[in-house]
Design a protein around this nucleic acid. Structure first.
Lengths: 148, 148
DNA sequence: ATCATGTTTATTAAATCAATCAATTTCATT
DNA sequence: AATGAAATTGATTGATTTAATAAACATGAT
């Protein structure tokens, strides 16, 4: 169906929650989980992955929690998607795995086209920052989205 | 992982095979299947779906086969992807299913952003025609099925 | 030391995808 | 009409991925 998975969606919510509270603010994982309606048991995994990707700083122990390592304007949708979906690779050729059963072998004419689609997608995602999302969430849309 | 599925890839090969032979030419499903290294048992499904989407005309019976209903320049990657992946909907919000467990309910700030990404993707795919693919494929040697 | 926190791993359940098989319908040809 | 090559459809299996849960572990302010 060509859609992002749930964890990516949840991860966006986590970062958005932090971004809404400001750059230096530390929030407990549990608060965010409740505010953003994330399945409790999944939250752990999501936080861990965000931390691994350097998208949040975590603090264990009493009064621990999560904090953004940089300003929301410096974190984009692309960051989250790549951390959770892996590098976006629309076609199997683009992973190099498509040479065994491909009639064109290593010279597939379709491959560079998928590459173009992928680049278009990534460019758009890289242009959307969490500052944008915070503003949007405050009811101040920056752009008029127009989708078919 | 955010990738197209195999059937979509196979479907592109089918249309590409037809496009390479020209607009009015009728090819047997079996020929294409062998030329493009498509699993025999899957071929039936793919042809059926292409036909259902109006992307090929099919003819049953003796000397039946497949034919393109229009010029390759009038068929795009987007056509194939939408026929096989359904409408591209990156986020569940975009399907309207995301209002139950979404903390923002019907007013999600992220939704229009996914919409933008989606549009960028579709626009790029719509700009790639099978005429382009045929040109790209000229001069690229293919595997010869009988030697495989 | 302790307790509230994040971290990690293993497991289960559900959904999706790839592939196959078998039965059916279509239709040019004879 | 009868034939037979070809497309169409439905049911089924196995593999892979994703979602969710639970339990054991590590951390660090107090």
């Amino acid at each position: 169906m060509l859609k992002i998975n749930r964890q990516t969606d949840y991860a966006v919510r986590v970062v958005l929650a932090l971004a809404r509270h400001g750059e230096g603010v530390r929030l407990a994982s549990r608060e965010i989980q409740q505010e953003m309606l994330i399945p409790p048991a999944l939250m752990a995994r999501i936080v861990a992955q965000l931390a691994r990707a350097g998208l949040v700083n975590t603090f264990a122990g009493r009064d621990g929690g999560l904090m953004l390592p940089r300003h929301p304007s410096q974190i984009t949708l692309k960051d989250i998607v790549e951390a959770f979906e892996g590098p976006v690779l629309l076609s199997e050729c683009l992973q190099g795995k498509g040479e065994k059963d491909c009639p064109f072998q290593s010279n597939c004419p379709v491959r560079p086209k998928w590459g173009r689609v992928q680049v278009a997608m990534l460019r758009e995602m890289a242009s959307i920052t969490f500052e944008d999302l915070v503003l949007e969430s405050l009811g101040i849309p920056m752009t008029i989205p127009s989708f078919a």
